[in-house]
Simulated scan of single mutants.
Amino acid sequence: MTINLALGPLVSLIAGILILLVPRLLNYIVAIYLILIGLIGLFGGGNLNLR
């Protein structure tokens, strides 16, 4: 059985859960999310699959 996970949706799912649990962290979570997505885009990690 093979499970393919893209890194972008996984990061956004974790960020969404943290925002629901602790709404005060919204600014930090959004900033970290944008930085991570930018780094993934720059270094080509968008096609990274976890198996």
Results as ranks from 00 to 15, higher is better:
residue 6 A to F: 11
residue 12 S to G: 03
residue 32 I to L: 15
residue 37 I to M: 15
residue 10 L to A: 14
residue 9 P to K: 01
residue 32 I to W: 06
residue 26 L to T: 10
residue 32 I to R: 05
residue 40 I to R: 02
residue 6 A to D: 15
residue 26 L to N: 11
residue 11 V to W: 03
residue 37 I to A: 15
residue 41 G to M: 05
residue 46 G to A: 04
residue 24 R to D: 01
residue 10 L to S: 14
residue 9 P to T: 04
residue 19 I to H: 03
residue 12 S to F: 02
residue 12 S to P: 03
residue 22 V to R: 02
residue 5 L to W: 12
residue 39 L to Q: 02
residue 8 G to S: 14
residue 5 L to E: 14
residue 48 L to A: 07
residue 50 L to N: 08
residue 34 L to D: 10
residue 9 P to M: 07
residue 48 L to G: 00
residue 33 Y to D: 14
residue 48 L to E: 02
residue 19 I to C: 05
residue 29 I to K: 00
residue 10 L to T: 08
residue 32 I to C: 12
residue 21 L to V: 10
residue 10 L to Q: 09
residue 6 A to V: 00
residue 22 V to G: 02
residue 48 L to P: 02
residue 8 G to I: 15
residue 28 Y to M: 00
residue 24 R to I: 10
residue 28 Y to G: 07
residue 27 N to T: 06
residue 21 L to Q: 07
residue 26 L to H: 10
residue 13 L to K: 07
residue 48 L to Y: 13
residue 28 Y to T: 06
residue 30 V to H: 05
residue 35 I to M: 07
residue 19 I to P: 00
residue 45 G to L: 14
residue 23 P to G: 09
residue 36 L to R: 00
residue 33 Y to W: 14
residue 38 G to A: 12
residue 23 P to V: 13
residue 13 L to I: 05
residue 49 N to D: 13
residue 30 V to S: 07
residue 33 Y to C: 14
residue 30 V to C: 09
residue 27 N to D: 11
residue 38 G to N: 08
residue 35 I to K: 01
residue 33 Y to S: 15
residue 4 N to Y: 13
residue 36 L to D: 10
residue 18 L to T: 04
residue 43 F to N: 06
residue 30 V to G: 04
residue 12 S to K: 13
residue 44 G to D: 07
residue 22 V to C: 02
residue 38 G to P: 01
residue 28 Y to C: 00
residue 25 L to M: 02
residue 48 L to N: 02
residue 6 A to T: 11
residue 11 V to G: 01
residue 35 I to L: 11
residue 24 R to S: 12
residue 5 L to C: 11
residue 11 V to A: 12
residue 41 G to C: 04
residue 41 G to I: 04
residue 4 N to G: 08
residue 43 F to Y: 14
residue 18 L to I: 07
residue 37 I to K: 11
residue 31 A to N: 01
residue 47 N to G: 06
residue 24 R to P: 00
residue 29 I to N: 01
residue 41 G to W: 06
residue 18 L to K: 10
residue 7 L to Y: 11
residue 43 F to W: 07
residue 30 V to N: 14
residue 32 I to S: 12
residue 21 L to I: 09
residue 38 G to L: 14
residue 42 L to Y: 13
residue 48 L to S: 07
residue 14 I to Y: 04
residue 16 G to R: 10
residue 41 G to R: 04
residue 17 I to L: 12
residue 28 Y to N: 05
residue 22 V to H: 01
residue 34 L to N: 08
residue 16 G to W: 06
residue 35 I to F: 10
residue 37 I to C: 10
residue 36 L to S: 14
residue 28 Y to H: 05
residue 34 L to C: 12
residue 10 L to K: 01
residue 5 L to P: 00
residue 29 I to A: 00
residue 6 A to M: 10
residue 25 L to I: 01
residue 16 G to P: 00
residue 20 L to R: 09
residue 45 G to F: 15
residue 34 L to E: 10
residue 7 L to G: 02
residue 19 I to Y: 04
residue 34 L to I: 10
residue 49 N to V: 15
residue 42 L to R: 08
residue 23 P to A: 10
residue 50 L to Y: 15
